[in-house]
């Protein structure tokens, strides 16, 4: 039970997440996103092994973002013709604005909760395998992506080497964060040039091993099972229950 979401077919999970997010965009009351958020967290609590400490950490930036949405909607939202709740300086805050602000900022949280569910329970390699097997993603592209993904640690080492090389030659690392970010510009071109050369070598190696797009069999098969459909309907259930808030709220 605790591994169900991890074992779910990644393509179906992706579909479920996309459907939920597109549907939620139609709702402008605060209750729908709130209920949806609670439902998703409940699903994740029941059917996954999540590191909740890490989850809260990942949630934090979205919480800040939600706050940003909250106050901009209060200040810049259309006042509408609701009752004036209170006045700050020249600003009248109506009930309509108040509700909308809650709705938009809770929507950010609802979106991020389901996104984090996907990120925390999906293995990237398996996602690509599933895309290749269920949605007929071209193997040429899929294996190129997998190879590039495997390059990540190599690129990281290369980045550190470049940084050290620059430091030896003079422009040392600055204590100010802003300067360090602008200094990245100097590293980007050599890093990319190295990456281009690596891509070329990898492509030759792939051609030598016949990764050129012919039909392939798969060593690890990612299958569709009944569990996937049960989980998909669970997602739809959460969505429709939270959507029904329109009628009673």
């Amino acid at each position: 039970m605790r591994r169900l979401l991890h074992e779910m077919n990644p393509c179906i999970k992706f579909l479920a997440v996309t459907v939920c997010i597109l549907t939620l965009a139609f709702f402008f009351n605060p209750w729908t996103p709130l209920l949806f958020f609670a439902g998703v967290v409940l699903l994740q609590l029941l059917f996954s092994q999540t590191n909740w400490k890490l989850w809260s950490l990942a949630m934090l930036p979205f919480l800040i973002g939600a706050f940003g949405y909250f106050w901009t909607t209060l200040v810049f939202g259309e006042p509408g013709d609701g009752l004036v709740l209170w006045t700050i300086g020249k600003l009248d805050i109506t009930t309509q604005q108040w509700e909308l602000a809650w709705s938009l900022s809770l929507r950010v949280l609802a979106f991020s909760s389901i996104s984090l569910l996907f990120a925390f329970t999906t293995d990237p390699v398996r996602f690509i395998q599933s895309l290749m097997q269920q949605w007929k993603l071209s193997p040429k592209l899929a294996f190129s992506v997998l190879i590039s993904y495997q390059f990540l640690p190599v690129l990281k080492t290369e980045f550190e080497q470049l940084q050290q090389a620059h430091r030896i030659r003079g422009p040392g690392s600055s204590p100010s964060a802003f300067k360090r970010i602008t200094a990245l510009r100097r590293l980007l071109i050599p890093l990319l040039a190295g990456a281009v050369r690596k891509a070329e070598r990898a492509a030759f190696a792939m051609e030598a091993r016949a990764f050129t797009g012919e039909a392939r069999t798969h060593y690890t098969e990612v299958k569709l099972t009944r569990k996937d459909f049960v989980l998909f309907s669970l997602f739809s259930l959460v969505l429709s229950v939270s959507g029904s808030a329109v009628f009673w709220a």
């Binding site: 592209l141 190129s144 590039s148 990540l152 690129l155 070329e200």
Partner: peptide, 10 residues
């Protein structure tokens, strides 16, 4: 294709 994927990653 590989170059394009690598750009995607970087």
């Amino acid at each position: 294709i590989v170059l394009m994927s690598l750009f995607g990653v970087v």
